[in-house]
Each structure stands twice: as C-alpha cells, then as structure tokens.
Design a binder for these strands. Sequence first.
DNA 1: GTGGTCTAGACCACA
DNA 2: GTGGTCTAGACCACG
Lengths: 131, 131, 131, 131
Amino acid sequence: MIIELDLQSDIPIYTQLMDQIIEGIANGALQPGESLPSVRSLAADIGINLHTVNKAYTLLKQEGFIQVHRKKGVVVVDKNALPSTTEDYLSRVRKQLRPIAAEAICRGLSEEQLNEMIKQLYSDIQQKDRE
Amino acid sequence: MIIELDLQSDIPIYTQLMDQIIEGIANGALQPGESLPSVRSLAADIGINLHTVNKAYTLLKQEGFIQVHRKKGVVVVDKNALPSTTEDYLSRVRKQLRPIAAEAICRGLSEEQLNEMIKQLYSDIQQKDRE
Amino acid sequence: MIIELDLQSDIPIYTQLMDQIIEGIANGALQPGESLPSVRSLAADIGINLHTVNKAYTLLKQEGFIQVHRKKGVVVVDKNALPSTTEDYLSRVRKQLRPIAAEAICRGLSEEQLNEMIKQLYSDIQQKDRE
Amino acid sequence: MIIELDLQSDIPIYTQLMDQIIEGIANGALQPGESLPSVRSLAADIGINLHTVNKAYTLLKQEGFIQVHRKKGVVVVDKNALPSTTEDYLSRVRKQLRPIAAEAICRGLSEEQLNEMIKQLYSDIQQKDRE
DNA sequence: GTGGTCTAGACCACA
DNA sequence: GTGGTCTAGACCACG
C-alpha cells in the first residue's frame, strides 16, 4: 500500500498518515490481521520523523483500528470487531459534518449534491476492494 | 445571535467563531447587509481577545462571507453573491469528507445513514430560517 | 463630474477622492480655474464625512493640485503651473512602481505588456478630454 | 539577501518585507525551493516582532509566493508555478497603475518617460539575476 | 469609536 | 526548534 503525504498541507502529517491507514482498512488494502511496518521502517520509508509515525500509531490504537501484538508487532483489527455506530462516534461525526453543511448551505450546495458526493466517495474508497 | 464557544476544544477559537458565524448566515440569523459587532465589542461580549475575533473576521472576509464597509463596519455578504459551487470549493469539500467517509466505512456506518445525518443537519441548521 | 467611491475597498476614502479629482484634472473634466464644491456640500453629495473631504482637499492643496481662494473657494490649478517632473516626484513614482514591477517579473508579465497597459491607461484617462 | 526596512515609512513593515522578498524572488536572490529563515530568526535579525514577520509570510503564502513545508519550513515557490497573468492580477495591476498614470498626466510626465522608467526598473531588479 | 498595525510574552502542537 | 494560537496593551489612521 502506498502512502501519499502532502507536506505542504495544513493537515498534520500524523493525521494524514492516520487517514491513509484508515482508508487502507476501509478499502481492504490492509486486511484484518495484517501487520503494519514497524514505526522505524515506516518512518524511513516515507521519510518522516519517528515521533510522527509513533503518534499516528498510538492514536490509531486508541481508536481501536490497530492492536499491538508482542510478536506480530502492529496488526490491523478486523473491521467487524470495531464498536460500530456508538453514540459517541455518531455525535463526533455530526460535529464534523455540521460546519461543512453550514458552509454548503451558504454556498448553495444542496443536500442532494452533498449526498451524491458521499455516494461517490463510498464507491471511490471501496473500489480497490473489488480488485 | 448567540455565540457558543468551547474554550477547552482542540478546535481553535477563531475557527469555532467562523463556524458559528457561517451557520448564522446559513440559517438566516445573520441577514445579508446586516452589520456584525465590532471586533472590540464582540471580543468583550464573548470574553476573548480582540485579535482572535479579528482573525476570524479576516478569514471570513477572505472567503467572501463578510466585507468591511468603511461606514457600516463589518457587513454580511448576500449568500447569493457567493461564488457557489466552484470546482475549488467542491474539491475542498471532497477532501474534508473523504476521511470521514473512510472511517464511516470501517465502522459500518452506511451511506444511507450518513445521508440521513446530513438531511437532519440541513433541516436543523435551516430551522431558524423558517421562523 | 461623478465621483465613484468603493466603500469596501481597502483604499482610504480620502485617497480615492484625491485620485478621482486628480483624474478629473488629468482628463479635463475639471478645468483650470474651475471651482470645486465646498467641503460641506461635497461631503453631503457623496455621503461621507466632512473630515474625509477636508483631508483630501488639504492633501491636494499640499501637492499643488488645488488652491484656496478667499472668494472663489477651492479652485483647480492649471496643470501647466504644476512643477513638472521634479526629481522628488520622479523618485516617488519610481518607489511606487518598484514593487509593481517586481511582482510583474515574478508573474511573468513582460516589460512590454506593462508598457502597453500604461499606454491604454493614458488613452483611457485622456479619452474624456476629447469629448 | 539583505532586507532593508524603513521603520519611519508610512508603508507597513510587513508590506515592506513582502515587497523585499518578492523582489528577491524576482531577481533570483531567492531561488525556487530555497528556504526562508524562520519567523523567529528573521524577526531577530531585522529587529522586529515575529508576528510582523509572520503576517508577511502568511500573506505571501496566500498570494502563492511561498509555501510552508512541514519539514523544510518556509520555501520559495517556483516563479513558473505561479498562475501568471490572471485576469484578476491584470486588473489589480491596472487599478494600481491608474492613479499613478493620472498624476503623471497632470504633471506632464509622458508615456514614454514612464515606459523608460519601467524599463530601468526591470533591468535594475533583474540585475542580480545575471550574476 | 473603529479597524489596522506593532510589540511582547506565553503555551502548545508538530516534527 | 518551528509554526500556530491566544492574550495583552499600545499607537495611529480613518471617518
């Protein structure tokens, strides 16, 4: 799986890294049980700081996407094992979406267009799954 | 219009302020042509520094939501005057939604559920508009 | 002569007013010896503050474009009476043009294009003279 | 590269700083990809506050002259990457030049003399480029 | 009185 | 160590 980082972006590198890994899990590029590279090797591979990779891994672990095995190292959790649609999670998503929706209303982007966009994203992200 | 800030949040105050004002414009609490309070008075009202308010105003101006009128002070721009659905804007929204969608897929939140959430947000935000 | 002000502009109103009057002198809309409206009436006409008009007039007087007669009020000076191409003036123009030229170079706007633009401005401004 | 500021000037320090940096880019003193000093060190060097430097950098970033790279710090963008001669840009230049041209007409500075001045500025600014 | 500019000092997130 | 954010206090230009 290829990690693409934008060092010019205002999004922190560790966040970008998390997002990419989560997307990898979503589209099946990272299968449940699969091992992620060690902090050290991943950092070297993509040319970033150890701390940065470490921070991403730590947060991913906290959110339940990965687990640290003593032997296998960092492994991907089964999607189905994730606590789905917690109320906590739902309200977090709502908070994330709210300002996006507000701006969309101001700019005349309709509910339908936004939903269409989400539909495209879903199929776009899951696309690689079918390969 | 009431501004609610969470000073503990990891979202910068000026961003929260921007979001609230944009939502105010979206729901009609802030009508086109209406003047916003001066940086000083708003800062005093909500108990933050005037520079923080100023930063929010500056960014909102830059994004076209408000204008600084030399006589009327800070003025709300007409929603319809905003360049709606620029390709730039659409791709920005897509970038914002992508990680949200990816996580949703992992957590088993379906496209339909997300759509429903957006529908609720739209009606929730626009609610005051109907008054 | 019609004065057009942009209250949204970041250029101070008094500067805009000066610019318009100078352009009026340049294109002959304001003839030498002609009287300008009084501070009071001009302010009322264009709906701005007395102080603002006053400041513009004061600066124009300082720069030699207008004179204050005890009887006729504010009158336009003859262009030819202006101290032309002082070294002071030339270096001031150079200072104004320098950053414009620097940015033009960065953005790949050629010397010729810039000169062409000036040519157009000259004919554009003097156009009304022919009417 | 040497930065020269006039703290007595009525031109804001951050604007002067921007102008100097843009000129540095124009004349090749600042090469594409080169890193600018950090806000702190530059502020210390030229004896101004870091927020003032920061404002200049922020605006330069906004106008596309520099980018903030998460590893390299503040980096000069390739001139060729700048969107050259946008209609927006051209009309902005026109607005800047208009009052200059108007005054020039009043003072009897001919089109040719202005053109000559621009020619000199171009060669003056680009001078260092040839070294 | 308002916004714009500048300074100063502080904390935190990031790498 | 770097940029990002926030606060505080001050002066000036503008209207």
